[in-house]
């Protein structure tokens, strides 16, 4: 699949924003951000919301006809993209009311409940984003429960690191959050390795089932088009095998290994500089991961263009 930068930026950045807001949403209950004043909590929440907004704006650049984007709320019953759009829009008033409650009233029961509700919405939206891809039976590399799991885990991981950096730069205690971030780094790296292994297994339709000639070899003689097609541009993207292995290694190193070393205290006490490097490294790593998520996906229409299998 063609890796569109607007969609990669959207899923990574908005994912990070939802991650920040999820952890802030549950922080009053779990004590992830102890001693954060209402002012500080609200500002950190607004940073998360800014990331979400930047991502959502970027997502509209992917549309060929964005003036009809407002129509994307009508098919809520069947379309995951519609569900994502509905939840993403409902999220704003909920999140702003919660942040306002936090700012004006501090740590009250209402704030805790609204925070939990916001956190729930964050996970629901991340799952919806993942399901847009996971629902497609035509792309076996996406048609797996690992896809939404991956979107949720990586969103939370980036959120935890960004929130950690914000706490550290305001000299607030962050030991609990760092423990959560450590757990997320390990689990999300593990999920990614399982995913790489899983998509390496041969499965799915072949050129034989695509054309109905299952008792003999089938080779493409003529693709039928003499110039570029929408399908070549959208689905024909292929990565070199060697480049792929390198990119997988780079992505895992940047999003998991380096942040793990930085926040586990191997290089000394975990301060704002270590966390800043961890945030930048993990963001770059997840960006490469999301690029690979698209580039490695092989649509079944390629079988008609001569691929023997997907």
């Amino acid at each position: 699949m063609h890796p569109a930068l607007s969609v990669i930026f959207f899923t990574v950045t908005a994912g990070a924003g939802y991650g920040v807001l999820f952890l802030l949403g549950i922080s009053r209950l779990t004590g992830l951000t102890p001693e954060a004043s209402p002012d500080q909590a609200t500002v950190m929440g607004l940073v998360g919301l800014a990331l979400v907004t930047a991502g959502l704006i970027s997502s509209t650049f992917h549309l060929a006809n964005p003036k009809n984007a407002w129509r994307s709320f009508v098919r809520f019953r069947t379309s995951w993209l519609s569900r994502e759009a509905v939840f993403a829009v409902l999220f704003y008033p909920l999140c702003l009311i919660w942040l306002a409650c936090d700012w004006f009233m501090g740590n009250t029961a209402l704030t805790v409940v609204l925070g939990l509700l916001t956190a729930l919405f964050c996970v629901v939206i991340l799952v919806c984003t993942g399901m847009i891809y996971a629902q497609l039976k035509t792309i076996r590399q996406w048609h797996t429960a690992l896809t939404p799991v991956n979107f949720v885990l990586l969103g939370l991981l980036l959120g935890a690191l960004i929130l950690g950096f914000m706490l550290a730069s305001q000299n607030l205690p962050l030991s609990r959050l760092v423990s959560v971030a450590l757990g997320l780094v390990i689990i999300s790296a593990l999920a990614k390795v399982i995913y790489f292994y899983w998509i390496g297994q041969p499965a799915g339709p072949t050129i034989n089932t695509a054309l109905g000639f299952t008792r003999a070899t089938v080779r493409l003689l003529d693709v039928g088009n003499s110039s570029d097609t929408f399908h070549n541009k959208e689905f024909g993207y292929q990565v070199d095998k060697v480049k792929l292995i390198w990119l997988r290694a780079i992505s895992l190193t940047l999003m998991a290994v380096l942040p793990l070393l930085l926040i586990s205290g191997v290089f000394g006490p975990v301060g704002s500089i270590a966390l800043l490097i961890a945030v930048l490294s993990a963001y770059a790593g997840v960006f490469v991961e999301r690029w690979l998520f698209f580039a490695e996906a092989r649509h079944v229409v390629n079988l008609y263009h001569g691929f023997q299998r997907t």
Partner: peptide, 13 residues
């Protein structure tokens, strides 16, 4: 709105 999702969902191009 030109989001391409239907083209992604179609196996037959």
């Amino acid at each position: 709105m030109g989001c391409n999702l239907c083209a992604w969902a179609c196996p037959y191009g």
